[in-house]
Design a protein around this nucleic acid. Structure first.
Length: 472
DNA sequence: TTTTGAGTTGTTCGA
DNA sequence: GTCGAACAACTCAAA
């Protein structure tokens, strides 16, 4: 093959990139392209911060490609129109890309494939974003797993994939073709976060990985539950845009685990479990696409969730009167991220204390999160709400005070994000209404919008009614 | 086909 | 303060 196109999507890196390697080894020359589709910029699930991070990742990729002597072509428009046009311009015989798993992305890829085939251009997709795809890990009966533990056992029993070999220089230089300068448009780059975005690109992702594997990973099993300690890898935005490859992550983790002591290995194993969850929910989304529209367990679609707009707005703004919930929600708005444990606490609070649909929380998270990923976000929310695959039993309702005391015992996380409470003593920090001298009016921190002890039995009754089939 | 064991992350109550 | 039991049965996956 003389000329190929590599279409970058969620694989914004040069190293350990399956389809790029494929294009580079099978063609004399290759043309890299990124397409800024309208869907990336408009729609209910688009987040300004995530978009800004994506564009910075594209910019970092552009620089990396430059070092290889390649110029990234950036175009805007519909992929099924842009790619055939570009293929004709550069006389490409095939387009290579890494496979995506979301239903809407696969529908788009089918359109792209037929548009390319119509003019005699090939379209090849490679497995890249996950170690194991949706039909590669099945029960003995040949069905997709809906329970995590048996899925993870099979996953762990498989040989781990190794990183893709380093890219060779192309034999011929790629042709110069015009670009849309959209990536450099400052109006697209803006974001609403109070804090700077994390550094984007492959170098930043590898640095994060090495820093994490140099110590924090060995304490991950306990530290991940302490939001103030930042014991997580912070790699999720990079895994989402693909500025690091999953095979690289797995290979480095395995190497580090081999040299660790027993407690350190436990930390490694728990982190690996999180990476397996990522693939579990990806295969759930693919095999059970109805989770995008409603509950995985469809009987729970009968729940009549609360439509209290004031409650929802208070949750979004971090003004529920529950310190751990509010700290987490303000952290999300300011940084575009939230520690794992905190995500569960706020999700439980929205769905069980406020009894507002997990779908509203799911959407809010997608609008806010730098790492917002359709499959993982949906799976996490359905788990918290009790409507999903292998979900939390509905009677397992987090108590926001107990959770706050357990995961933020020193109060550092709450004091950081809820300065109104900074001077409260530890004993009442997670329940300011117990503090005799504390006044919502004077401090500016709101009173509880609901009483947990009252909401819990209401929520249990609601779920029980639906289970009995008597409607909520 | 039937049986068996097991299931991410908790809370509350009462002894 | 600490501990065990109840929460509620149900469905999945494998033997």
């Amino acid at each position: 093959m003389h000329t190929a196109i590599h279409w970058f999507r969620r694989d914004l890196r040069v190293s350990d990139n399956t389809a790029l390697h494929e294009a580079a080894s099978r063609a004399e020359r290759w043309v890299p392209v990124f397409i800024l589709e309208d869907a990336l910029r408009t729609g209910p699930d688009v987040g300004a911060a995530r978009l800004a991070f994506l564009l910075r990742s594209v910019e970092a990729l552009r620089k990396n490609l430059e070092h290889l002597g390649h110029r990234l072509v950036v175009r805007s428009g519909r992929s099924e129109e842009v790619l055939p046009r570009l293929a004709a311009e550069v006389r490409a015989e095939a387009v290579f890309a890494n496979k995506r798993y979301e239903p809407y992305a696969q529908a788009r890829d089918r359109k792209v494939a037929s548009a390319l085939y119509a003019q005699g251009v090939g379209f090849e997709l490679s497995k890249d974003a996950v170690a194991w795809e949706e039909r590669e890990i099945l029960t003995q009966a040949g069905n997709p797993f809906t329970v995590f533990t048996p899925y993870s056992k099979v996953w762990r029993s498989r040989p781990q994939p190794t990183p893709v070999p380093r890219l060779r220089q192309a034999k011929d230089p790629a042709p110069e073709v015009p670009c849309d300068p959209l990536v450099l448009d400052p109006s697209v780059w803006g974001h609403p976060l109070r804090q700077p975005l994390p550094a984007a690109g492959e170098r930043a992702a590898l640095d994060l990985l090495e820093r994490f594997l140099d110590g924090p990973v060995f304490r991950y099993d306990t530290a991940r539950d302490l939001p103030a300690e930042d014991g997580t890898s912070s790699l999720s935005p990079h895994l989402r845009v693909g500025s690091i490859g999953i095979r690289t992550v797995l290979a480095r983790l395995r190497a580090v685990r081999e040299k660790a002591d027993a407690p350190g290995q436990r930390g490694c194993d728990v982190w690996l479990t999180e990476l397996i969850w990522r693939e579990f929910y990806q295969q759930v989304l693919h095999n059970f696409p109805h989770v995008l529209k409603g509950a995985f367990r469809t009987e729970y679609d009968a729940i009549r969730w609360s439509d209290d707009e004031g409650h929802f707005q208070a949750w979004c703004a971090g003004r529920t009167g529950y310190p751990i919930v509010d700290a987490a929600m303000r952290c999300l708005a300011a940084t575009g991220t939230m520690p794992n444990r905190a995500r569960m606490i706020v999700a439980m609070f929205l769905t069980k204390d406020l009894m507002i649909s997990w779908q509203r929380g799911e959407r809010w998270f997608m609008q806010q999160l730098l790492d917002g990923d359709l499959a993982a976000n949906n799976g996490g929310w359905q788990w918290s709400a009790g409507t999903g695959t292998d979900a939390a039993p509905y009677f397992r309702i987090f108590n926001p005070v107990t959770q706050g005391e357990k995961c933020d015992p020193t109060g550092a996380f709450v004091r950081r994000w809820v300065p109104e409470l900074a001077k409260l003593p530890d004993a009442t920090l997670h329940q300011p209404w117990e503090e005799p001298f504390f006044s919502p009016a004077r401090s500016g921190y709101p009173d509880r919008i609901v009483i947990h002890a009252e909401q819990r039995p209401k929520c249990l009754a609601m779920f029980k009614a639906v289970k009995r089939g008597t409607d909520a």
